[in-house]
Amino acid sequence: MFDTFPYDEWSEDIAGFWTWGPGSSTGTYILTAIGIAVMLVAFVGFFILENRKLAHQEAALKASGALDRPTTMGSAA
């Protein structure tokens, strides 16, 4: 089929070498499990990091008094 390289003779070996697998092997299971674990940790990390930032800014804004309701003279009466 090809005339510049003996692919016909080597094709099976090449296909095997360049194929990710064999699938459903211990290695692929382990890689999958690690990947899922990292993904889940990333989700938790997104929550923790953002919560920290929001809590910090919320506290800073409350402490600044910028959002406090202004008191009106005589309103207590």
């Binding site: 360049w18 194929t19 990710w20 697998g21 064999p22 699938g23 459903s24 692929t28 890689l31 999958t32």
Partner: peptide, 8 residues
């Protein structure tokens, strides 16, 4: 983990 989910 299928062999088709990578270089193949």
């Amino acid at each position: 983990w299928a062999s088709e989910m990578g270089p193949n």
